[in-house]
Amino acid sequence: MLRVDGIHSYYGKSHILHGVSLEVNKGEVVSLLGRNGAGKTTTMKSIVGIVVPREGSILFDGTTISGIETHKVAQRGIAFVPEHRGIFQLLSVEENLAIAARRDSIWGLSEVFANFPRLKERRHNRGSDLSGGEQQMLAIARALVNGPKLLLLDEPTEGLAPVIVDEVVQVIAAVRQSGIAVLLVEQNIKVCMNLADRHYILEQGNIVYSGSRDEFCTADQVRERYLTLN
């Protein structure tokens, strides 16, 4: 469904991605791992067109999306939940959802409120009144009502209390259940191993490992080499 092929991305003169290739198939949850500064966020930004790759191509559902504008990428069915969540602080919870809602989405407001009861309680509150966990839930919910076929999540559990992390994990499982594919960037390796069908590891702008769930479980050396903090 998504096929990233040898992309090179830059910020000004600094060359960040050195030919990243990866794939996400229908219905899959795929994780993208790597140390701080490896280029995970840049990869996601390149997919949605916030950063335009200078080389390589990105195909989604068989058509090229590299180089097209961000809003058109979103309309094609890729929703990106950024690391900082991007909740509109001045808008109410309901308005945050309403501006994203599309009729053809399998996730409507009622499905969202059923899966995120907290958001229903707080639907008249402003974004700025929400806790970190609630903002993350809202960010995911807002992406879902946008009708994506593929959801990109950048560190969804970052900075959240363990109970909330569990809730986020359940939500991602529910997203997969509904048939939406997920590309997940996550520092919490337990969360990743729990959710993802396949894993990629990024190191200094290169994909240095890819493997299935089972392969990754036994690849202790790989985990040690690329993922432990130093």
């Binding site: 504008e69 809003h71 979103a74 950024p82 509109f88 602080q89 001045l90 599309r102 946008n146």
Partner: peptide, 25 residues
């Protein structure tokens, strides 16, 4: 209105508005 909400959202972050599939141009 929804359009008003988009405009208010735009004063916070046009990038995030675009990420929701809204034509910011």
């Amino acid at each position: 209105t929804r359009y008003g909400a988009i405009l208010r959202a735009g004063t916070e972050s046009t990038e995030m508005v675009a990420l929701l599939g809204i034509d910011i141009f």
